[in-house]
Amino acid sequence: MSEEKDEGQKPEEKVKASAESPETPAAAPTSAEETAVSAGSATLEKEPEAAGGSEPPAADLEREAKLKAAAEARAARAAAKEAANAGGAAAPEASADPEREAKLKAAAEARAARAAAKEAANAGGAAAPEAAEPPPPPEPSPKQPQLDAIAQLIRSLVHEEALEDAYINEMSRHMPTIIVKNEHWLKAAERLKQHEELDFAYLRNVSGVDYETHLEVAYHLVHLGSGRELAVKVKADRSDPVVASVTPVWATANWNEREIYDLLGITFTGHPDLRRIMMSDDWVGHPLRKDYEPLDSEV
């Protein structure tokens, strides 16, 4: 879609705008410090109301106050500019201007309301998560039996020593994970897909990772229907990375392996068409390697 180009700049601008916005309300009070004292009495009257009337949610109150303050600040700044333009006698004149004084008062009020709202929010927010924090569950993962069964099957179907490790990745919603030894990977892949108890027909993702000590290919498998998941990892030597291609097993591995070959330089033996896919054919190096240095530093 050609629209992308037209709108490409927007988020950056937005980020900039949001970075500036906190300063805007603060600008007003500094430009009118003398008159803030006179606004003080009004603030005191208003403050209890803002803090006590906590029926409206704190966030709304804060937001409203912020908006108000920003508007006031803009107005105050404009007024100050006008006053400055008027000449030397500007300062006393400006403070005498009833309109301006009212605005400053409002700005101070807004500031106070905001502070109150923030305090209330902090007090409320701090208590809740502490109470909700559950103690870390010491019991084994619910997926542990699943993992044990898979590991057992692979060991008996492929090779006694086929697995380097098998563990539950608790961070990733308790994903059963196995590390298959490089030389046993193709046979293991075939069994993973074809054995009726494993039956992982759907390869959802293939990722390559450069761990600096070694390279690794991670395969994410899922059984459509039951939703059983398995992550398989295969390690490769960094100086001469070779992993067996599983394109004959899962057709979807084709482009995924080409992408990993292109960006990380892992050679997939048995791949039907191992060419670069993202970078141009004459590209030098593999960009996702941690020690990658562009051939042409200006690119």
Partner: peptide
């Protein structure tokens, strides 16, 4: 009808070491 739109998040987001796959 109301409520926060941001949860409690540390100022600098540093996920613990490990890996995740979500879809």
């Amino acid at each position: 009808s109301g409520g926060e739109t941001m949860g409690k998040v540390p100022r600098v987001i540093r996920p613990p070491a490990g890996e995740v796959y979500v879809r």
